[in-house]
């Protein structure tokens, strides 16, 4: 395969065990915990892949192994053809990494200094750097705060600065760990639109972990859901919806408050004055006519299951404590 078509990320049976010590000194025992188990993941150039999972599912450990911060205990992994833990430094100049929870900019330096330093650290030719900086400054609207020290930036500004710093060297792969965490609606959408454009224009492969399903719906054609270290789902967003039976909901506004409606194929889950929520298990048309026959209906809304409920159902299905 030619390098342009070779997978950007290729992990086979990737795993990471941690040894934890338990108990007090004389009776201390070691126990091995698998944070990541047997992960097979192939990401092709130009893909945007959302990496989802509940807290503690092993998302961050996986990202750390892909970027060379953490050495795997089992399996094989190649990122842009390199072994991340052995060739960390070389890999670093090919990928961009952004941790949403913390900045990789220099806290006390003006944003501009951080971006200028990036040029030297990544050895980007001066004219390439100037061109990309101008581009990124325009698209991410960095202009007004380029000379502000990073610690004085708002979260949204800092995030945009971080993105610019991660992209100045033109990486093939952008790894984002919760890129929109804590951002307001406008900042989130700015960043999402930016990522889509980047992907479309430059073909940058994007791998992002997130808890924000808005990110997933807007950005990702492909979703990987991890649970307790292993992969629970890998595929398209529609496939994800279909894979978990999450019922549609009929919201009924009655003329007057009534006791919870129970009709064949419709089960009331919530009542708020004259408004009732019915979980559908049959054809909505039949349920609607049943309800309309028994009550005076003012308004009706049919709600598709949100991606939230789909993912919640998937997490629950994987956890032994539910059922």
């Amino acid at each position: 395969m030619s390098p342009e078509h070779a997978p950007v990320v290729e992990a086979v049976g990737l795993g990471r065990d941690f040894t934890v010590r338990e108990g007090r000194f004389p009776r201390r025992r070691r126990r091995t915990v698998s944070a990541v188990r047997d992960v097979d993941l192939t990401v092709h150039p130009g893909e945007i892949v959302g990496y989802l999972g509940p807290n503690g599912a092993g998302k961050s450990s996986t990202m750390k192994m892909l970027t060379g911060i953490l050495t795997p205990t089992s399996g094989r992994v190649r990122v842009t053809g390199l072994d991340p833990s052995r060739e960390r430094t070389r890999l670093a100049s090919r990928i961009g990494v952004v941790f949403g929870q913390r900045t990789s900019l220099w806290w006390d330096l003006p944003l501009w200094d951080s971006l200028a330093l990036t040029r030297h650290l990544y050895r980007v030719p001066a004219d390439d750097h100037a061109r990309r900086l101008a581009e990124l400054t325009g698209v991410l609207e960095l202009g007004p705060f380029l000379s502000t020290p990073v610690r004085q930036l708002s979260l949204g500004q800092r995030m945009r600065g971080d993105l610019a710093a991660a992209l100045l060297h033109g990486p093939r792969l952008l790894v984002l760990d919760e890129p929109t965490i804590g951002l307001d609606v406008v900042s989130k959408s700015t960043i999402r639109e930016f990522l889509l454009r980047l992907n479309a224009r430059e073909g940058t492969t994007i791998l992002l972990t997130t808890h924000d399903l808005g990110d997933v719906e807007r950005l990702c054609e492909r979703v990987v859901v991890v649970d307790r270290g292993g992969i629970a789902y890998d595929g398209g967003l529609d496939g994800l919806r279909a894979s978990v039976p999450a019922p549609r909901v009929l919201v009924v506004d009655l003329a007057a408050p009534a006791p919870p409606i129970e009709v064949p194929g419709g089960h009331c889950t919530r009542v708020e004055g004259p408004r009732q929520w019915l979980e559908l298990s049959a054809n909505p048309a039949r349920v609607i006519s049943e309800v309309a026959g028994a009550h005076e209906v003012v308004d009706l809304t049919l709600r598709e299951p949100g991606i939230e409920s789909v993912v919640a159902a998937l997490y629950r299905a994987g956890s032994p404590s539910a059922v």
């Binding site: 750390k64 960390r88 941790f99």
Partner: peptide, 23 residues
């Protein structure tokens, strides 16, 4: 503790140099 060491590890420069010059 703050995770900035991870940020040093994903830059193509020796983390020792980054650490020694920090501040």
């Amino acid at each position: 503790r703050t995770g900035s060491f991870d940020a040093m590890l994903v830059r193509p420069v020796s983390p020792l140099v980054q650490l020694a010059t920090d501040g």
